[in-house]
Nucleic acid binder design. Structure first.
Lengths: 340, 340
DNA sequence: ATGAAAGCGCTAACAT
DNA sequence: ATGTTAGCGCTTTCAT
């Protein structure tokens, strides 16, 4: 059988409560002698308290659930690192799941977390609207949304300023006399960062007095699509001299499509990527990217979530907040102009 | 308050047991009428059973814990995908943690999982020996090791044939008349894949009647180190004409060091990487890599783990097994010879 | 076919 | 300072 608190109590010759108190540092005036006995028994039996029983009794699990929409994307791994670091510091364990941008999976994940009585949730929502999010409110579970804003739900949300990010890139390109800028993105589908990036693109062009060309806004769903659209773009009479990518996976497809078409970067066409990764500097050519503060984003989410958990414990209301972080730009060689 | 089984029972006008039976499809001859009532109550109250209570009672959680040593490495994300897919199919939830190759963190993680009464563990061990692994045996928790063999512990282990992997690479290089092969690796420190890859290197050289040069075996710990060792290598009188990397992160550092030294790949020196990634084909030049079947590895681990969980339930013994998967080679341009 | 009740392992209020 | 006990929410045996 498994070792329980009862076994420890017997071995130490004390009651369960005493063991419990020792375990939880409630040294409610416990004699040093008994304390030592308990410690010894715990060690000898290699006792580990049953977290289920403890959680059931205390109505809290000291565990935070994280639902990410895409674990393959290294951006999220950086975010996760921030989450992990702060959680560890604050004494929370983590339960991480991957919704893979799939509504059904996301719903499963939320339900699973709800049943497990997690203390709080950090969610990078798959798509605009998942009905299951309503349950979050009904269940009074503290939660924070990451990166994507969810319509019709008043909730804490940590985002990065996408308008600013894109404008950083556009201004950089314009500074290099590359004013003929096409943009590639995945289908917006109501997903806030995508919408905002396209909005930022339009705004930035306008600010630079560049006319918008609808046919230079390329919405693609996969590699094939990207390749096809790239061909259309490059075979047209008027060609862009720069491409703005809005996603780091998409950037790889763009680079590949360009390479296949025999286009040289940056000589014939410049490329700006979104999200800095380990390999950005190793691409051919090294990539100029818009950097989002991923690690900080993770930390910010945990910080806010813990505030919310505490507020709930103390039964105080907290208004929903949107926290916006600042992106920046790393200039490498993919847009030329750096004397190479 | 939270909705409990009692609330559902009251609302449906039945006992808790009946609700429980309906929930768990133990339709132990329950009248259709009551069943419907229960379903309705569940729906109206948006009831979700408390997993802690359920787990406590049933002594199982239907949850598998995964301890990975490095979430930053995309190789592990692929493994994770395999794990996720099979777990979902088999009705298990997942709890994923990141030990970051840190013994203390790993110990915390194992203990946490033990306390949470998870049904089984999949562990990519940080280092050769973690004393906490002894607890796994003592607690009779089913577990499987991934990728790294742990000494002195008889346990199921899923690995990839590293000797074969390296020999694939060496033979490829030799076929391209690149017989002067240096190898880079992280400090072996008793970590089996590292030891095996270096062993494979020695074996493969011998098989090709190439003399081993100790000074071409470079053990590095980080980027700086890699850069320094690369300089030593390239400034020597006799220089290698190929480099074998043994890790995908290390490959990036190698490429960077080479670039800094002004060396052209593959013209002056060929490079083979370990582990295929999204970006391998986008590197400069596109990278020839040894591919490990990551997804299959994840699936294999879960498959074996579930066998073990079942065996435990039925109280049958299972002998520890080591399952070895086969690597392969993707040839691109980083070793030249492909008519470019 | 269904309900009553015990009990999983723990904590915390209450008693001493 | 420490022990006794009730109870967290569920499943499951045992009655009926």
């Amino acid at each position: 059988m498994r070792v329980t608190i009862e076994d420890v109590a017997k071995k130490a010759g004390v009651s369960k409560s005493t063991v419990s108190r020792v375990m939880n540092q409630n040294y409610h005036h416990i004699t040093e002698e008994k304390r030592q006995k308990v410690f010894q028994a715990i060690r000898e039996l290699d006792y580990r308290p049953n977290a289920l029983a403890k959680g059931l009794k205390q109505m809290k699990t000291s565990t935070i659930g994280v639902i990410l929409s895409n674990l393959q994307n290294p951006f999220w791994m950086k975010v996760l690192e921030g989450i992990e670091d702060l959680c560890q510091e604050e004494g929370y364990s983590l339960m991480i799941v991957n919704s893979r941008d799939n509504l059904a999976r996301e719903e499963e994940n939320v339900k699973g977390f709800l049943m497990r009585q997690l203390d709080g949730l950090i969610i990078n929502p798959s798509l605009g609207q998942n009905p299951v999010f309503q349950s979050l409110e009904a269940y009074h579970v503290p939660y924070v949304f990451l990166n994507r804003k969810v319509q019709d739900i008043q909730a804490d949300t940590i985002v990065v300023d996408n308008i600013k990010g894109v404008s950083l890139a556009v201004d950089h390109l314009v500074g290099l006399e590359r004013r003929r800028i096409a943009v590639f993105l995945y289908p917006p589908e109501g997903i806030s960062p995508r919408l905002e990036r396209i909005e930022g693109y339009l705004k930035a062009l306008r600010a630079n007095r560049i006319e918008v060309r609808e046919d230079w806004i390329k919405i693609v769903t996969n590699r094939e699509d990207c390749r096809r659209e790239m061909q259309v773009l490059l075979e047209a009479q008027e060609r862009p001299n720069a491409i703005l990518s809005t996603n780091n996976m998409l950037t790889l497809d763009i680079l590949e499509s360009l390479k296949e078409s025999g286009y040289r970067v940056p000589e014939q066409i410049g490329v700006v990527g979104y999200d800095e990764t380990e390999w950005s500097k190793h691409l051919d050519p090294p990539l100029t990217t818009i950097v989002q503060p991923a690690y900080e984003m993770g930390k910010a989410a945990v910080k806010r979530l813990i505030e919310r958990i505490r507020a709930k414990e103390q039964k105080v209301q907290l208004a929903a907040e949107t926290m916006e972080l600042e992106p920046s730009l790393i200039v490498r060689r993919s847009c030329g102009g750096l004397g190479d």
